[in-house]
Simulated assay, not measured.
Amino acid sequence: MNVTKTPTGKSINGAEIYAIDLENNTGTKVRIFNYGTIINSFEIINKDGKKQDIVLGFDTIDGYLSDAYLANYPYFGAIIGRYANRIANGSFSIDGTKYELSKNAGGATLHGGTEGFDKKLWNIDQVATEPHASVTFSYTSPDGEEQFPGTLETQLSFELTDHNELILSYQAETDLATAVNLTHHSYFNLSAEGGNIAGHLHRMNASRYLEQDDNFTVTGNLLPVEGSHHDFRLGKTIGENWDAETGYDQTYVLDKPYGDLTLASETTDPVSGLRLQVYTTEPVAHFYTAKHLEVQNGKKGQEYRPFDAFCVETQHHPNGINIADFPSTVLKPGQTYYQTTIYKVII
């Protein structure tokens, strides 16, 4: 096990951005920036004995800060907070008080607002090599940030095991009742050559998905996957019967006991043989096949195009703060928010 901390030469408001490298005993290496806790690379040794990076991104931190990238921003590899996905009309009420948030998606609040947790510089609290290579970050979101109530103390740790498991453990506390729904937004491609992921095999343990309006905001209705192209229960190629123009951008309700750490999805590239399993304590997973992806000068000069990656964003129900029948996303003083998600690569 090995952990290294390297300055990038870039700073935010005078504070240095660092790259943290976690390496296990099998040669797997994960690089994470403390800017947005971005998973910059997830590099494994594939069956041919070659290094293969399974996440999209840039060679250096500069790409994530460039105006060109931010103009068509896909949230590459970053934490999402305070609230993942869309909040309808950019507002919610807690205990009779209504909060109007920053709106950044057609009248809704998307991924925490104009400047969410993905654009914050996180503190590096601890690095360790035992029992596994790990790093723990923290960020204090002040009361009123993006108009959310309460000061939220958030901690996120990454732990890389010898079983090629990257374990993400979240924790948060507040001094005032607030809305919290955290996730991570890595873009995966399991092909050694990259490119379109329509041929990846995908399986998801979900019998229902969440209806969305024309602005992709969850309405509160649950729909059965049976008889629709959303049915991944037995596994199929991602492109088998999708809409080739839109792909998938949908939230699936996982068939699991609430709070249990269980398998949410499994995705395999038939050519490379790589398999990515996602385990989570969260009740839903948002499956996105990157229909809006248009990025120049990615890693090694690559151009990333629509459907060149997939995301499995584990979280609570989007817009759940406004839908009483959904699991609560209200965090109150004296309570602690917990979440665990594991990305496991099988070679």
Rank of each mutant, 00 (worst) to 15 (best):
Y258N: 04
T97W: 00
G116D: 00
I342S: 07
T219D: 04
Y170F: 15
T174M: 09
L222N: 00
D255C: 06
D213N: 14
H132E: 12
Q155I: 11
G77P: 05
N25K: 12
P270R: 10
Y279N: 08
E282M: 15
N2I: 00
N164G: 10
P142S: 09
V3S: 11
A198L: 09
L263G: 02
N189H: 04
K256G: 06
Y288K: 07
N297Q: 13
L70C: 01
T267D: 02
D269M: 06
L263Q: 08
T329S: 02
N221W: 10
I342M: 09
G81H: 01
A290M: 12
V345S: 10
N322A: 05
T60L: 07
D53S: 10
I38W: 11
N34D: 15
I39M: 14
T280E: 06
V284E: 01
H230D: 01
N46K: 00
Q277V: 06
T28C: 14
E16S: 05
S157W: 12
L121P: 03
R82Y: 00
G199H: 13
E130C: 00
F307T: 11
G116H: 01
F92G: 04
T60N: 12
N196I: 12
A179L: 07
D249T: 09
K300Q: 15
T183L: 11
K300R: 13
W122G: 03
A309C: 11
Q339S: 14
N25I: 00
D214I: 05
Y69T: 06
H111V: 03
E43A: 05
I61M: 14
K103F: 02
F216L: 15
T336Y: 10
H202W: 07
D213T: 07
G27A: 07
D62N: 11
G273Q: 00
P142W: 07
T246E: 12
I38Y: 09
N123S: 14
T97K: 15
T268W: 01
Y338W: 10
A128C: 10
K119R: 14
F310V: 11
E245G: 04
Q171H: 09
F137M: 09
Q339V: 03
D95R: 03
G239R: 04
Y288T: 08
T26A: 07
I321P: 03
H200C: 05
V218C: 09
R275E: 12
L56Q: 09
V135L: 06
E159I: 13
L22W: 02
D175R: 08
D21W: 00
A78S: 15
G144Q: 10
P142L: 14
L22G: 08
R31N: 13
I79H: 05
F76N: 00
T161R: 03
S157N: 06
A290P: 03
N123Q: 14
S272G: 05
T161E: 08
A78P: 04
H200Q: 13
L22F: 04
I80V: 15
Q212G: 06
A88R: 11
Y64H: 04
D59L: 05
I20H: 07
G247V: 04
R31V: 12
S272L: 02
I39G: 08
F307E: 13
F310E: 05
